[in-house]
Design a protein around this nucleic acid. Sequence first.
DNA 1: ATGCATGGTCTCCATTAGGTAACTATGTTT
DNA 2: AAACATAGTTACCTAATGGAGACCATGCAT
Lengths: 117, 117
Amino acid sequence: MSMDCKFESALEIFVGKWKPVILFQLFTNGTMRFSQLQKAIPDISKKMLTQQLRELEYHDIVNRKMYLQVPPKVEYTLTEYANNLEPVLNAMWEWSETHLKHLSELYGEERAQGDRT
Amino acid sequence: MSMDCKFESALEIFVGKWKPVILFQLFTNGTMRFSQLQKAIPDISKKMLTQQLRELEYHDIVNRKMYLQVPPKVEYTLTEYANNLEPVLNAMWEWSETHLKHLSELYGEERAQGDRT
DNA sequence: ATGCATGGTCTCCATTAGGTAACTATGTTT
DNA sequence: AAACATAGTTACCTAATGGAGACCATGCAT
């Protein structure tokens, strides 16, 4: 196993199209229900959300708490181990801010403002 | 464009299977030739390496310098703009160290030592 | 009786990712 | 004359990703 491979396999756990976004939501909002995550991340499908959450759960990044009631209620929280990811998520967030600024410098302010948050 | 979408599209630029590994190499070694990158990342195919480098170049993360000689010589360097990614790469690296420790705690030392670097 | 709400699962399908191997150019070495 | 070296490109094929939409359970409100 090369150094790169170690690096790579450690990254596998949270990189990908959706995992950083899900983690960012949980870091920001704390405990969230499935439907809250869906609303917060409108473009993700149920299937993907479930799948990504299961993988994060498997890797001890998120915690799943089911309440036995009808209609069902499930809450997701970050585990203690997930705290190790905070610096990465923060750095990613900073990067995305910087990058957006970079883009608006390149393509002009009006366009950047046109993209509402 | 939602906040998540901004975040996501900023991430696009450097997440993926290979980009963090390539960037890590360039941060560590400075200027590298194509063949050096290939040797440093043995599992990547020429096609992928070329493709990822082109994308990074397109996004102003790496710089490509061709020397007109035979056999050809091409050098890749990080751009100034790429410095903004350093904190992310560092945080990722820290995370991967932490994660490896986590794994060896879970599965025992002898196994972790068996995986040579 | 009907419909709604939640947190899913399942199947089908299209797109994308990514690997292999052959091919290119051409000056230098054997 | 043939082979080597570098930095690719191209065609082809398979595997993985990921979206849409139907379906499920069931207690409560209408």
